[in-house]
Structure formats: C-alpha cells, structure tokens
Design a protein around this nucleic acid. Structure first.
Lengths: 194, 194
DNA sequence: CACAAAAATACGAACATTTGTTCGTATTTC
DNA sequence: GAAATACGAACAAATGTTCGTATTTTTGTG
C-alpha cells in the first residue's frame, strides 16, 4: 500500500477538517471554512490536498484502518471469545475517546464518498463485521454467549458504544476508566438486578 | 400550538424529503432533487412549503413529538420502573421500524436546524432525557436496576437501539417481533451466559 | 559555508456550476 | 370568480477548483 508520509501542514488540515465535518457535516463544510480554520487562503489548501473529497477519503479510511488493525490483533490473541469481546469493546471505546472527530466523520459522513471509494469502504466494513461475527459465533459455540442471532448481537453491541464520541468534547471530558468498565458490564450482564 | 392541517401534496413532499435526507443528508440534497422525486418543478415546491429549512424543522419536530408523547404516556403508566423501561424500548424500536427515514433525519440532521429551532430542539431533547433518567433512577431506587451512573445508563441503553432504522429498508425488512424481544433481553440481562 | 537551482508553498483572481428562492403568469380546483 | 397550484425564467450568493505568479524552503554543488 502506498502510504506516503503526511506533512505537518497536511496533518493540520486533516485535523481541522475532521472537526469541521464533525460539527457541520461534510457537505455543509466549505473549503473556505476549512481554509479559515487553518489560517490559509482557499487556494493554498490545494498545495497540500488534491480535493475536498480526498480529505474525506483519507479520514474515513484512516479510521477504518484503526478498527481493522485493532481487530486483527484481537483475532490473533490467545484467549477465549469472552476475552476477545472484551478487547473489541476496549478497541471501540478507546478509538471513540482518542479520535472523537474522525470517528464521527467515519460513522456519519462516509455516504459522501464517491462511488469507487464508497464501494471500497463498504467492503472494508463488511469484512470487519465478518470478523466480529466470527468471534461472537465462537462465543456462542463455547457456551460463553447466549445464542442470539449474530446480526442483532453485533449491531446492538457495537451500537451501544456509539454515543461516547458524541459526548466527548474538549469541555466535556469523559472518565475513560469508569465509562469503559460500566459499558462493558452493561453489555455482558445487563442492567437488571438479578 | 398552531398545528395546521397538512395537505396531501405537502405530506408527499415531506415524505420524499425524509427519504432523500436520509440517504444523501440534508445539505447534499437539493431542492431540485426533491422536486424531481415528487414530480414537480422546483418553483412549484414553494406553493406548499416555505423553505428547505421548514421541511427539516417539520421533520425533526414531528419525530420529537413522537418520542415525547410516547414518553408522557409511559410516565403516566401504573407500572414499576422495569415495565416502564420495557415500554421505552418498545417505543424506540417501534418508531425506528415505522419511520426509519424520519428517524434518521431526526438523529443525524438536526445540526442543520437554524439557531432558533436548534435551541428549541435541544430543549425538547434535554427534557426527554430528563424523563428517561427519572425512570431509570426510580428503577435504581427500587433495586430493580443496577446502580450505574444515569448518563452512562441512558446513553448506552438508547444508543443500543440506534441501528434498527439504519438496517431497515424496503428490501431489507426486519422481523419486528424477534428483534424487539432480543434487543430487550440483551439490554436487561446481557449477552454473557451466567 | 555560500549560493544558485529546484521544489514546495502561499496567494489573488477568476471560472463554471450549483444552490435556494422569487416573481409574474398561466392553469387548475373549488 | 377566487383561491390554490404549477411553471419557466431569472436572481444573487456560494461552491470547489484552476491558473499564473510570487514567496519561501530545501537541495545540490562549488
């Protein structure tokens, strides 16, 4: 894969774009908005990036990599399914807390990718979900997890963590440790007292 | 409240807009897209609606009403907290299945509301969350729910159902009954085998 | 180190499109 | 005949991007 090094300025542009896309959405963010945020004139942006869409592509696939690479490591772990599921939750919560803006873009703005990138993106996602489901199936087979349909299991599980990156802002930090522990417990054992 | 009756054509426009906003996003949907979908010319739309933004406002607040009115009925129920929480989950799952497009707009596009409506919208949401938290607190006090922080409890619970309206499309119907039952069980008792 | 050549970066002006909306007028509905 | 609806033409504003040209930074060489 051609992973060319990213200059300091480009990094700066990507970060600013992530924040703007997060709060205004991709389509409603203009290149002039972005330029202002970075302290450049519009045309200067194009010394660093090819197009607005390239920014979106970069952000989306970068996050995709975070998830995919994280999952790969988990799959290779020498552990039972429950421990792997624990690691998956760690992965998602960590990414949400460490990259709240990029993750929001990843979750909400991928639909604006152009045809080619969109298909590639969906492929990556399908692949990721396949990996997750395999682990869940493993858990069911070993009697560690309840035998619910994989789709519902996976969607509910992943979705239940998809609020952390919305909540996390600069003036609303999150107690990572507590949040992580409780969300995990909720998912594994539920909220009802026995 | 000035709830003027909505003509057939306007209804049609609102429905088409909900679908377009769902898949393309509010900002990326043009009035010409919308006109085409409804089978009119652009300018004709303005015989029925005041502006693009009015459409978004209508959609968002209509959904807000669905939730708020649903919750009000639940609050008035003569039931314990666990039953109320069950009803809340029913409410969310039903709305997601019955109005997948509007709900997606409600969830993802409210940020494009203009200042006044935005504030009003956030107020409605805060109020709704307050109601939810009260029920959760009631559950904790009665030893029906585990004593977790209300924020985490509420966010995780509501968030865990926020995938159903994404999945639900015309060619991907959802087994309402099964989905509803299992999601509920997952939330209350978790996924881990005891 | 000096210094010219080259490459990277910044900018203003301009572009073709697309945007939401308005207006005057025709047509339909009541 | 009045009110509601539909339409074509036109609008100003905003959009992403390009181009030519300065300016700055980096590089290669004596």
């Amino acid at each position: 894969m051609p992973k060319t090094k990213i200059s300091r300025r480009k990094r700066e542009i990507l970060n600013a774009a992530a924040v703007l896309f997060r709060y205004k959405g991709y389509a409603a963010t203009s290149m002039r908005d972005l330029a202002e945020k970075v302290g450049l004139e519009v045309s200067s942006l194009y010394s660093h990036i090819k197009s607005k869409e390239e920014i979106l592509t970069t952000l989306c696939f970068h996050c995709g990599d975070l998830y995919s690479e994280g999952l790969e490591k988990i799959i290779e772990m020498d552990a039972d399914a429950l421990q792997k599921i624990d690691a998956i939750m760690d992965l998602h919560i960590n990414i949400a807390i460490d990259h709240p803006s990029s993750i929001t873009v990843f979750n909400d703005e991928w639909k604006h990718l152009s045809e080619n990138e969109l298909q590639q993106f969906l492929q990556v996602r399908r692949n990721y979900e396949k990996g997750i489901k395999q682990i869940l199936q493993e858990g069911i087979d070993c009697n560690l997890l309840k035998d619910y349909p994989l789709d519902i299991l996976m969607n509910t599980m992943l979705s239940s963590m998809r609020w952390i990156h919305y909540i996390k802002t600069d003036n609303n930090p999150i107690d990572t440790k507590i949040t992580r522990d409780i969300v995990k417990k909720m998912l594994l054992n539920g909220v009802a007292r026995k």
